[in-house]
Amino acid sequence: MSGHAYEHIAAELRGAILDGELAPGTRLPRHADLAARYGVSEIVVRQAIDALKNAGLVETRGRGGTRVRDRPPVRRVSSRRYLADLGSQATPRTSFTDDHAITWSQYRLDTAYRWIEADERLAGLFEVPPGTRILERHFVFYAAGRPAQMSRPCLLAADVEGTPVADPGNEPWPGGTIGQLRSLGIEVDEIAESVATRMPTPEEARTLNLGTGVPVFAVTRRMLAAGRVVEVADPIVIPGDRTVLDYDIVLPPSPG
Rank of each mutant, 00 (worst) to 15 (best):
V230Q: 02
D241H: 10
G227D: 09
V230L: 05
Q180G: 01
R93I: 05
G65V: 06
G175M: 00
W115A: 12
L57V: 03
T212G: 08
D167H: 00
D110V: 15
L52G: 01
T207F: 02
A55G: 07
L245S: 08
L208N: 03
G62N: 06
A11D: 04
V128P: 05
I134P: 01
R222W: 00
P129Y: 00
I49N: 01
S79G: 13
A101W: 08
P200S: 09
Y38K: 06
A16H: 05
T103F: 02
L109R: 08
T94F: 05
G39C: 03
P164M: 04
L210H: 00
E231S: 10
R152G: 04
E12H: 06
I43T: 13
R108G: 08
L224E: 09
G131Q: 11
A148F: 00
D119F: 02
L210N: 04
D246A: 13
S88A: 13
G145N: 05
G211C: 07
G56N: 07
D119G: 14
E187N: 09
E136Y: 09
H8D: 12
P130D: 01
P29N: 02
A205L: 06
V128W: 04
L184V: 04
V40T: 04
G20F: 06
A205E: 14
A11V: 06
R14C: 10
S183I: 10
A225D: 04
T60G: 13
V44W: 06
S105C: 06
L34M: 07
L125Q: 07
G124S: 13
D234A: 15
L83N: 09
V77E: 15
Y6F: 15
D189L: 02
I17R: 03
G87L: 11
A196T: 15
P215M: 05
F217W: 14
G256A: 14
E117V: 05
R198G: 10
A148H: 04
V165K: 05
P72T: 06
R61K: 14
L122C: 06
N209H: 13
D241R: 04
V229H: 03
P172V: 01
S151P: 01
L251Y: 13
T60S: 13
A123L: 11
R114S: 12
V188T: 13
L109S: 05
A192C: 09
L34P: 03
A192F: 10
S79E: 06
I17P: 00
